[in-house]
Amino acid sequence: MNTPIMSVDDLHKSYGRGQNRFDALRGVSFGVHEGESIAIVGKSGSGKSTLMHLMALLDAPSSGGIVLEGVDTGTLRGSRLNRTRNRTFGFVFQQFFLTGNTTVLDNVVLPMKIAGIGRAERRRRGLAALEQLEMEGKARSKAADLSGGQKQRVVIARALVNNPRILFADEPTGNLDSQTGAVVEDILFTLNREHGITLIVVTHDEDLAARCDRRIFLRDGLVVEDSAAVAA
């Protein structure tokens, strides 16, 4: 198999000191290959959300490292770190993180605004992403006026506008009913299969995890099972 797009090497993450110290991750290692769909699975407190935040370069490990396309991410600072994160990753969170009193289109184009892309191009790409998610008719609506399923489609559109290589989804169906959740799942896996976007899902939903190519199970900050290793 080709070189991983991302390598996670002996990641440790601790919070606090002394008697108050909590070891969220205690030495996690694995590779992520381009185009995979991976579920990071574990109970609350297993370390799965901490791991996702480190992989997405939203936080730094206490020790260990992450190599992204041959670059040691520990060397990235300031604008270079922000640019790498903005260009490489898309994010889908269960809480949506939409600005309710602004339009759907304004919410979708925000990553491009941060990246310094011009207004006309932002609008073009934002509308194209909404069309892909069958939400172009809501472009001028306020985000607060949308249903839960519509909000999650807008979140996915926002995640796609910078053409990410890797899409992180943290409990993407956690706030949705089962029928709407199934639609959102189908969208994510279609993006993975048909567009080659690497999909990393953090979930405790076994049915969602079962749809992924690979499942990595965490317990108490350690990988206790990796289905890729089992398959090998």
Rank of each mutant, 00 (worst) to 15 (best):
H33V: 08
R153S: 02
S37G: 07
G100W: 04
S44L: 06
D23G: 06
D207L: 14
N162Y: 12
A139W: 01
I117N: 01
T173M: 06
L51V: 13
F91P: 00
A210W: 12
H33M: 11
T103S: 15
G27E: 06
L11A: 08
A120N: 11
G90S: 11
R26T: 12
R80K: 15
P111I: 04
R165V: 07
K113R: 12
I187E: 13
L176A: 08
S62H: 10
N20E: 15
S46T: 04
R140L: 06
R123H: 06
I156V: 10
E136G: 10
A24L: 06
G116S: 06
G47A: 06
G148C: 05
H12F: 15
R153E: 02
V8A: 08
S14L: 06
R87A: 14
L191H: 03
F91V: 07
L81N: 06
G70K: 12
L127I: 07
F30R: 04
E206Y: 11
L133S: 00
A157S: 09
D207M: 13
L110E: 04
A39P: 03
S178P: 07
T99Q: 14
L167M: 08
L146C: 03
R215V: 11
L11V: 14
K13I: 10
S147I: 02
T180F: 01
V202N: 02
I117K: 03
L98N: 01
E69L: 09
V108F: 00
V67G: 07
R215F: 02
G148E: 03
S44R: 08
L191C: 07
G45M: 04
A232R: 14
L188K: 04
L105G: 01
I216D: 01
V108R: 00
F89Q: 01
S49G: 07
V155K: 00
R153W: 02
N82I: 09
L98S: 02
V230S: 09
N107V: 04
V104K: 00
N163T: 14
I197S: 01
F30Q: 05
G118N: 12
S7Q: 15
G42T: 03
F89A: 05
A169V: 10
L110T: 12
P4W: 10
V71K: 14
T180Q: 05
A229G: 11
G64T: 08
G118P: 03
K142S: 05
V109R: 01
I38S: 02
S37A: 10
V201H: 02
T84A: 13
L76Y: 05
E34L: 03
L11G: 02
